[in-house]
Design a protein around this nucleic acid. Structure first.
Lengths: 209, 209, 209, 209
DNA sequence: GATGAATGAGGCTTCATTCAT
DNA sequence: TATGAATGAAGCCTCATTCAT
């Protein structure tokens, strides 16, 4: 008797549309009209499915974070619990910049900018970053336990590598020509070496040492 | 009878004002009215001294970059040409986050966001980043020449360390609680070790090894 | 197979809901969505039972007027046809403000505002007021016939007392603190005294003494 | 050197415009665009001179109240301190409805409606009503002191007459045909008679006189 | 140089009403 | 009857920029 609810689809559509528009125009530059039109919907419908623009942004952050976490988990699985290979996979997963989705990248930089001033965005951003840092810290910790890494502060080490990754995101999204082609993952692997003094070299991507 | 031109003062006032307002509200969120009021000037005057809002932003970028470069140069001078001490000084200069000016930090993150979509901002941002990378690359190069570092790609190494620094900027401005207190400089020094295999340890700040 | 029509119930539900919402938010401030939700119905259903928002408002006016008239009639019955007691009952019925339903009161003020500009609301409002005035005029008339009142214009007298009552409605709904507690009915009874068996006239303006 | 400020004129223009538009369309029905166009100004200018729509409404209330108070004071002056004449003048001033400005009248009813739900409007409305009541109460008090009135509660009496006046406002603005032509002032004068030198009281409800 | 009023486009949001199911 | 998604027109407000003085 009633129309079946398609709210979830619509919300997904709208979220995707904001992500796309925001990557090009920024958050403030992404008007609801733009978003609606990118989603192929009427303007009013956007506010039927989202209370306001900020909620869409939060949905975008959630969306990106969830996709990231799930992809990362998938990649880590292949390392079969070996911290050395996990670390390498972690780095390569994040810094295969050539094959990265530039839209998501730009969006993420934009999100970090909004996190500066909107507490709810900050919270969401923080959650995502904390999760990523913790995920890496756990790899480090297991490596230390297994005597393949040496490190007295896994949190700091994880945070440093995540910072390097985030910094590469910024550079590759804004001034990619500054990054020698293909150098990112390799350099971060070397930096990880400095932090963790691994007993055997970190494997390069694709290679299964 | 002509009044002495005070254009430079005014431009400086306005630039400083945008920097302040932008740190809190972002670039789009910084209205000319806000800027004028923060500068203690009338609205109309802003557009007398700047063609439009973008020009003020470019002036802000220039201002921050120049202050950065000059401060960095000053800090490096104290290392008396010793690449090892210069590298340590470079890292400490950027990552003494506790004493950093949060306004400038937030502003810089914001600028990187604008660089994503405004070509002139991107160019200015790129210039600043390129200068910083090159400055570090030159330290590395001289270290390699003097056999205190080992590294076959100074550009990549410099870029990696600058990325790490930029990443720490983002994290410290948005989710500072994620960074173990005081860990940033130390961790980056260790990462530099991995990149450059220095013959003697990088000195901690203040210590003259 | 036909479902028994519940249109009347639904219309009543919706009408009650508008009355409630309107008391708090005014007519323009009462969105159909608010009304539907207050009625526990789906939005679309409102327009199934009412052509448009105005029709609901008219139903509200009708509802309030009918309840008023029926309650008033009931109260007057107790006076057993004695105009003096009827008059007192009429006044007390309207001005027992302490026990009045504030929702209906606010709603009535709001209706009077809409009557200013919507002819159909005005007509409905006018009908209600005319009925009330006539009901009071009839009491006065019978009092005059029975020599318990003196008054040569029952319409004017009734209108004056109804005005006083309406004025008290406005004040008690907006600035109740201005009305000395419990004074309304008493004062109007005294005013009725003046109208219906006056002692000496106040001089008209311009006349001295 | 600078343009002379004309803010006061503009604010007055805008306030007058809202009063005019609001009399016809109500407060919610008076769009800023309507107001601007009625004032012969650009839309944006309205918000340059007023923070928001509510502030304009408050200015309207203030405007009406001040004009009222000043006109009333002027009228009362002519009564040369004689309470009896002052009372008559007070009543006639308010109830010369034939010569009243219908725009202001409608506006005042509308204001009372907004006072129901907006605390700042309520405060302003209350201030105006309290002033008027007090002004009348003071007349009554002096009349009692001078033995020309009998009344043990000047506040209640003043409030009753002001209610009657407010009620006449409502009726004359919405259903003028209900008021016998020219009866308002006369009837209120008679009601004042009842309040201020009553002969015998109406029986309270429940009592069977 | 300086002031601050003026302009008008455009942004976010709300809403009455319609419609497919 | 009932649902709730969909539409698109306004409405309020902000703002970069211009301009008269």
């Amino acid at each position: 008797m009633a129309r079946p609810s398609n709210t979830d689809e619509r919300r997904e559509q709208i979220t995707r549309a904001l992500q796309k528009v925001m990557a090009k125009n920024g958050y403030d530059g992404a008007s609801i009209a733009d978003v609606a039109s990118a989603a192929g919907l009427a303007t009013g419908l956007v506010h039927y499915h989202f209370k306001n623009k900020l909620e869409i942004l939060l949905a975008v952050v959630k969306r990106i974070a969830e996709a990231h976490d799930s992809n990362l988990a998938h990649v880590l699985e292949k390392a079969e619990g070996d911290p050395v290979r996990e670390l390498a996979a972690f780095i390569d997963f994040h810094l295969a910049l050539e094959s990265a989705d530039p839209e998501t990248l730009a969006c993420w930089i934009t999100v970090s900018g909004e996190a500066l001033r909107e507490s709810r965005v900050r919270r969401a951003f923080e959650g995502a970053m904390a999760g990523t840092v913790e995920s890496l810290a756990s790899i480090v910790r297991r490596g230390v336990e297994g005597r393949v890494f040496r490190c007295d502060d896994d949190k700091s080490a994880a945070c440093a590598l995540v910072s390097a990754i985030q910094g590469y995101f910024v550079l590759s999204a804004t001034v990619p020509s500054l990054i020698p082609r293909g150098s990112a993952a390799r350099a971060v692997r070397q930096m990880a070496t400095g932090l963790l003094s691994p007993t055997r070299p970190l494997p390069a991507p694709g290679r299964r040492s």
